[in-house]
Design a binder for these strands. Sequence first.
DNA 1: TTTTTATATTGCAATATTACGATATATATC
DNA 2: GATATATATCGTAATATTGCAATATAAAAA
Lengths: 110, 110
Amino acid sequence: MGATKSEHFTDEQNQLAILTKALGHPARIAIIQYLLKVNTCICGDIVNELPLSQPTVSQHLKELKNAGLIKGNVEGNAICYCINEIGFAKIKGLFTQVDLHLEKTKNECC
Amino acid sequence: MGATKSEHFTDEQNQLAILTKALGHPARIAIIQYLLKVNTCICGDIVNELPLSQPTVSQHLKELKNAGLIKGNVEGNAICYCINEIGFAKIKGLFTQVDLHLEKTKNECC
DNA sequence: TTTTTATATTGCAATATTACGATATATATC
DNA sequence: GATATATATCGTAATATTGCAATATAAAAA
């Protein structure tokens, strides 16, 4: 074994897992934070910001893009990456539910 | 290779990655959603809710607990699991920043 | 104390992820 | 066209994750 049994879960569960899994690496968190910091599209200096090789960074960018957390547009011979709000909006739903739950229960159990 | 180079990233980045990675599996999303749904501590029926064996579910629960997303208290010979607000609060910070960013930029780039 | 019930741990096989050197591709500039 | 620059892909080694059967542990009930 070793393969996730995604066919046994709902589409929503698989979607949320894909999104959160894509965030689940410090390099990819760093990429998102960098995109937030520069507050505008950046066109290729992410490699210089990270302690990883160019192919590795490219791979992380691809994963974030596939998951729907960033967008990448060709801009000359560089590429402009930026936050994809759609992906983040989907995750946000889960956190809203957590907040509602905590308000309701005040987490008085454990 | 194959090991994440966590020593090259900040503590905050590693912490966020640990939290989001723990959410990055449909079974663990399903566990969180179930805890939200029952709206109270559950004491062992998670195994019956999931299409996975008892050892596998136990492992997923352990990962969520280690990451700080759920708490587990012994309750007789069963165990009471529930949401750990601290873990969720930490992730929430990232999403707040994303929201602020999107408000400021209106994401007019890509 | 024995048995039952609930959960955790161990061991292992299958698969996935991470990382990077080498190389390919694609656009810009000369 | 030739060259430079930016990014992606391939190939591959090291490591991590997923899943479960078997087994261990620990508390409750008999």
